[in-house]
Simulated assay, not measured.
Amino acid sequence: MKSKKMRDNKVGYFLLAPWLFGFIAMYLIPMFMSMYYSFTNYNLLNVPQFIGFDNYKRIFMQDKTFYQSIKVTFSYVLILVPLRLIFALGVAVLLNKKHKGLGFYRTFYYIPSIIGGSIAVSVVWKQIFGNQGVVMSILAAFGIEQKLSLLGNPKTALSVIILMGIWQFGSSMLIFLSALKQIPYSLYESAMVDGAKPMPTFFKITLPMLTPTIFFNLILQVINGFRIFTESYVITDGGPLDSTLSYVLYLYRRSFAYFDMGYSCALAWVLVAIIGVFTVVLFKTQNNWVFYESKEGK
């Protein structure tokens, strides 16, 4: 029995080896290297010089652009995440009803999530909202002349990027749709017997039963929101006047435009800390609004 168990373990480790190698080589080692470089002055050309916490002091005490990128990223996350989840949930509720062409509509609404983060779509989005784009032409047709495009105006540029993020609601929608199908129909039958109307039924039955899924989607979307890069880089390159300068785009600039690798590594770990704090806060608050059936019996 022991020899058979040893043989099974060897087979298991052999099958696990490719993933384990990739995890160590592509994630674990770079993570520790990044942490080390965050305490150094390093520009890819010279030998790293250990400087302690100077990079972190510089971030919080001297770097005004850091605070601008934080402001933009927080604005993006706080506006995008609720709107995307609300939109995804609304569409999921509609698609949960039986009607013809349901499979087509599910696929149609999911496609933006597959291609939405690509360079090509960002370029198309830039053309649509640019000076010669469709949006400007439509506004001109209605007699609304604009000197600046929506992307050229610091007050509206971030809104365009947020709108693109909302458009990519497909993955959240599918998760909501799967959760909706798991809600026991007997609950709705009881509500109908009691004469409950659709709106109270949604808020009293559907929404509470979906809170674990809402929580799951919320965590994913918050993490992805803080990592916004492609849209900000391709569509506006952080402009105008840094009004769309996301945190990751600023980190990228410090790394590959200024070759300030030690400083950019420190920025990366600050971002990890920010995402970690948000995640912990969300987990701490879940007991106040997330309903788990397994806890009801305790």
Rank of each mutant, 00 (worst) to 15 (best):
I111T: 03
T40Y: 00
Q62I: 03
G117S: 14
E145T: 10
F278G: 03
Q62C: 02
T279E: 10
Q168C: 15
Q286W: 00
W167M: 09
L271K: 01
V272L: 12
G239I: 12
K204F: 06
K181L: 14
L95M: 11
Y188S: 08
F259Y: 14
M61H: 10
Y13D: 06
S38C: 04
S172M: 02
Q127D: 11
V134R: 02
F108D: 02
E145Q: 14
I70K: 10
D63I: 07
I59S: 04
A179Q: 04
Q146V: 01
Y110L: 08
Y42C: 06
F283A: 03
S232M: 12
S294I: 09
L249A: 00
I183W: 13
T211M: 07
T206A: 05
Q168H: 13
L220C: 08
V222R: 05
M192C: 11
A157R: 01
G103L: 08
A179F: 02
T230F: 03
F32H: 09
A266G: 08
P198L: 03
F104R: 09
F142G: 15
N224E: 14
K147Y: 03
L85N: 00
N43E: 12
N288E: 10
I214H: 01
L251A: 01
G239P: 05
Y292A: 05
F291M: 13
F87I: 15
F14W: 12
M173A: 04
V281R: 09
P208C: 14
K71I: 12
S178C: 03
V248N: 04
Y110I: 07
N96V: 01
L148Y: 01
G239R: 06
Y56I: 06
I275L: 08
N288H: 07
V121G: 01
P18M: 07
E231G: 07
I161R: 12
T230N: 12
N131K: 11
R227L: 15
F259Q: 10
P112D: 00
V11N: 05
K181D: 05
Y56S: 11
R58T: 08
F203Y: 15
F104H: 04
I115Y: 10
Y42P: 01
I59T: 09
V193D: 02
M26F: 14
T244P: 00
G170D: 07
L44W: 02
L210D: 10
N153R: 13
V248H: 04
L177W: 05
V134E: 07
A120K: 02
D242N: 11
V160C: 09
N153S: 12
L16Q: 05
D194M: 02
I162R: 02
K295M: 08
G117K: 04
Y247K: 11
